[in-house]
Amino acid sequence: MAEPMRIRATMAGDVADVKVLMNHPMETGLRKDAKTGQLVPAHFIQEVTTTINGAAVLNAEIGGGVSKNPYLGFKVKGAKAGDKVVVSWADNKGDKNSAEATIS
């Protein structure tokens, strides 16, 4: 499941605008397969951690209620161009992924 994650981080004044797009099916475990009628097992991201230059800025706990291929946008004051943004997630099956980008 190590599919790429897209991160875009831009400065708007003194605030960094960070947008993250993760690749994940985000199955709630409540949906039934249309063909077999069986429940599709739950498979969703549980934890997203974000750091800028090593300092935590956002730690999100999410459930199956977030849409497929989750999008996350947030704003950080005090960051500057050239700072390194690292986003990593972990899902309920223990899969992990991480990506980084530079604020421009």
Binding site: V57, L58, F74, V76, G78
Partner: peptide, 18 residues
């Protein structure tokens, strides 16, 4: 979801939900 903000993160979250 529950989003914990720290450092200089502002009180803003944008996402897509079901």
């Amino acid at each position: 979801g529950n989003f914990n903000l720290s450092g200089g993160t502002q009180g803003f979250i944008s996402t897509r939900i079901k």
